[in-house]
């Protein structure tokens, strides 16, 4: 009896030892395999973020060491007319550019989702192709297509007797030009919509048809509620990427800049927030000020996301599937 107890204890301790040993081994391999991310997280995320916070309270021009100025950069931002202007320009893209792209993408997806479309993959490819054109290449292309005198669009408008504007040189039309280009590149959003539309069960439409619901009713009562999570996803992605609007604006603005603008295109009409941030940091070398702007951008994106989620909560139907 006694002997037996002892033996049991030994077996038990051996078991726990091997268990902790196993655990330790898993811990070691787990850590080893996660180490690339851990190192990257410290070097490329944590340290830069802390530095960005620090710089935002300093005057720093990259060549001399930063000097502490407290909240000056943040206060200056509120008095900087260009911050206001760039925010206004950015909001224009967020509030008008995003819905424009999504509506076109959804319409194309609906056209593709009809019953009996011959050559669906062909049409799908055609609508997706513009997305494949690199940003700079498509910017060059649209500078040519939207050229005031010889551009394709104005030549076509001429056929109908309309005198097209000087798209990229007229402050009133620059942002519209950008929206036209981005809407042309709506392929990804369209594919996402198309996949969502495919998931709507046909039985719902059949039932609605029996009840005599027309196409428009069916769209607003069945399709839209059913794909509302996808709409929300596309909306959020479109909005966030437009708060960070940069590449297209950089190419256009750098090439159409006029006197008296600070690198924001004609009349600073394309001075978007991130373009202004770039000019402040790598044109004027005000790194401290630019870091303060970047942190404000982070806050703005967070607030906008939270607001969108809150508003859409009432409209989005999450229990499909």
């Amino acid at each position: 009896m006694r002997h037996n107890k002892k033996e049991k204890a030994i077996v038990k301790s051996a078991k726990t030892i091997s268990a902790t040993k196993r655990e330790r081994r898993f811990f070691r391999t787990g850590l080893l395999f996660a180490s690339p991310w851990l190192i990257g997280f410290i070097c490329f995320t944590i340290v830069p973020i802390l530095l960005a916070f620090y710089y935002s309270f300093t005057d720093y021009n990259l060549f001399t060491s930063p000097t502490w100025v407290g909240l000056k950069n943040y206060i200056d931002m509120f008095h900087d007319p260009y911050v206001g202007l760039s925010l206004k320009n950015t909001l224009f893209m967020v509030l008008i550019g995003t819905p424009a792209e999504l509506i076109v993408a959804l319409c194309l997806a609906l056209l593709l989702n009809q019953r009996k479309v011959f050559g669906l993959p062909v049409f799908r490819t055609i609508f997706y192709l513009p997305t494949l054109v690199p940003v700079v290449a498509s910017a060059m292309l649209f500078m040519w297509v939207l050229n005031g005198n010889y551009g394709l669009i104005n030549q076509i408008l001429n056929l109908f007797g309309i005198d097209g504007p000087y798209w990229l040189n007229d402050p009133k039309w620059t942002k519209v030009s950008l929206i036209i280009m981005d809407t042309w590149r709506c392929g990804s959003a369209m594919i996402i919509f198309l996949a969502a539309l495919r998931s709507v069960p046909a039985s719902l439409y059949e039932a609605a048809e029996m009840d005599g619901a027309g196409g428009i009713t069916r769209f607003f009562r069945i399709t839209l509620p059913y794909i509302s999570p996808t709409v929300e996803f596309n909306l959020l992605m479109g909005m966030i990427s437009r708060f960070q609007y940069f590449s297209q604006a950089y190419v256009f603005a750098s090439l159409t800049d006029t006197a008296g603008s600070i690198g924001g295109g004609p009349g600073n009409s394309m001075l978007f927030y991130c373009l202004y941030l770039y000019r402040q940091s790598f044109l004027f070398y005000k790194m401290g000020y630019a870091c303060a702007m970047a942190i404000l951008l982070f806050v703005i994106i967070m607030l906008a996301t939270a607001l969108t989620l809150r508003v859409s909560k009432r409209m989005v139907n999450y229990d499909v599937e």
């Binding site: 655990e23 898993f26 811990f27 391999t29 530095l51 960070q244 870091c291 951008l297």
Partner: peptide, 29 residues
């Protein structure tokens, strides 16, 4: 192992940070 419980939420959180925030310090580094 116990890592994922702590690492995964941090990975999700880092996706929210716009690259403009880390861009300037990275450049100085």
């Amino acid at each position: 192992w116990k890592g994922p419980k702590y690492i995964f939420p941090v990975i999700l959180a880092t996706m929210m940070i716009p690259w403009q925030v880390t861009q300037i310090p990275m450049y100085t580094i």
